[in-house]
Nucleic acid binder design. Sequence first.
DNA 1: GTTCGTCAAGAGCAGTGCTCTCGTTTCTTT
DNA 2: AAAGAAACGAGAGCACTGCTCTTGACGAAC
Lengths: 232, 232
Amino acid sequence: MSSSLTARERVRAELTREIADVARRQLAVDGASGLSLRAVAREMGMASSAIYRYFPSKDDLLTVLIIDGYNALGEAVENADAAVPHTDHAGRWMAVCHAVRDWALAHPHEYALLYGSPVPGYQAPQDTVPAAIRDTVVYGRIVSDAHRAGTLNPPGDHPPAPPSFREDAARLRELMPDVPDDVIVRGLITWTGLFGWISFELFGQFNNAILNRAAAFDHTMRCQARTLGLPA
Amino acid sequence: MSSSLTARERVRAELTREIADVARRQLAVDGASGLSLRAVAREMGMASSAIYRYFPSKDDLLTVLIIDGYNALGEAVENADAAVPHTDHAGRWMAVCHAVRDWALAHPHEYALLYGSPVPGYQAPQDTVPAAIRDTVVYGRIVSDAHRAGTLNPPGDHPPAPPSFREDAARLRELMPDVPDDVIVRGLITWTGLFGWISFELFGQFNNAILNRAAAFDHTMRCQARTLGLPA
DNA sequence: GTTCGTCAAGAGCAGTGCTCTCGTTTCTTT
DNA sequence: AAAGAAACGAGAGCACTGCTCTTGACGAAC
C-alpha cells in the first residue's frame, strides 16, 4: 500500500513519473532523437545532472516511454475490441484496425518509436515484451474466437506450408489457440499488412499516391478481413 | 563529355562522391543517427568545416544517401525481375519479394533510412521520388502484365469499393495500367504486406516469435501471390 | 545527536552540427 | 601574361548534447 512508502520514496516516484511525462511531451513534439535530457531538466527547473538520479541513461528513459507507448496502444486496442459485440468478429477486426491507425495518427512519433527503425544503439530489454504484445494478444483472440465459432471461411487455397514453418506456427498458436496452420498464415499476413499500411502512411510512402487515406484504409482492411475468412 | 570539366570540377565531383561513400560506410555500421560529419571528415583527413563546401548540411548528405539507397534497392529488384521469364508472373513476384528482403537484410540501416521512421527534422525533397518508386514500378508492371495475360484469378470476393477510393485507384493505375479497381486493392495489400513483413522482421517485432524467417517469408509471400490472383 | 544514505547542483569532458574568418589555390577575364 | 573573382582547406569558435565527478545540504534511522 502507498502509506508504506516513506516521504522520500513518494517524492522520488512522483518525480520519476513527472520526468517521463515531460519527456513524452517533448517526444510528441520533436521525435525520439530530438528528445534531450537537458531540455527535460530545464523544463522541470532542475540541473541536468539530477535527471541521472532517476534514469541512469537516455536509453532507460526511452525504454519506459516505449513501454508506456505499447501499453497506451494496447489499451486503445483492447477498448476498441471490447466496444464491439463479442460474436461480431469482422466488426472487432475493423475496430482493432481503426484503433491502431487512429492511435498512430494521434501519436506519430510514439508510433515511430515502437514500430519504426530502432534507435541507434538501443537494444530492447526483455521487459518490453509483455507490453509490446498487448495488441497482438487482442488480435489473436479475435482470430481464435472467429475460428472456434466456425465463422471463418477463407477464400481460395494456399500452397502447402513447408515443414520448417510448422515450428513457428506452433509458437504463434499460443496467440491464436486451436487455429490451423493455414489460418495462422492468414493471421500473420493480415497483421503485418495492417502495420505495413500504417507505416507506409505515416512514414510518407503514400505521398502523392494515396490522398483519401481514411477511405482507402477502411476499404483495404475490409478486404483483408475477407482474406482472413471473416464474412463481409 | 568529361574532358569539358575543369580539373577543379573533376576533383570536386570526385570528393563529393568519396564523402558520400565514406558516409555510406559509416551509415552501414552505426546507423543514420550515428552518422557524423566530423567523423567522415576525420576519416578523409580533412577539416570538418571543409565538408560543408560539398554538402551544405547533414540533411543534404542524408538525401543523397537515401536516393542512392532507393536506386540500389530498385536496381536489385529490377535485376531480380529480369532474371525470371517474362510470362512467369508468379515467379517474378516471388523474385521481387526475395530481392527486397535480401537487400534489406544485407543493408539493414539503409533500409531503415528508406522505410523506417523519417529522421527528425527531415523533409524528403521531391527529387527522391523517381528513385523511391523504382521498385514499385517493377511491381506494378508485374501485376499489369499478369492481368493483361489473363492469368490473374483472385480468390473470393471483395466488398465494393467506396466512391472516394476510385480517385486514388485511378492514380495508382498509372503504376498498374489497365488493371481493375479490385486488383489495384489486392496489389496495394500485397505490396504493403511485403514491406510490413520485412519491417517487422528487421525492426525486431518477430523476436521470440518467428525464428525460421526465411521459410516463413517464402511461404507467406507465396500465399500473398494467391491473394493477388497469381497461380500457385 | 550523530551518522549515513540520498539528493540537487555545478563544473567539466568529449562529442556534435554549423558558422565565420583567413590565407591559399585555381579558374576566368582582360 | 597579369589581375580579378571564385572556390577551397584549415582553424577557431558557438551552442548544444549525453554523461561523470565532486561538493555541500538535507532527512531519516540508530
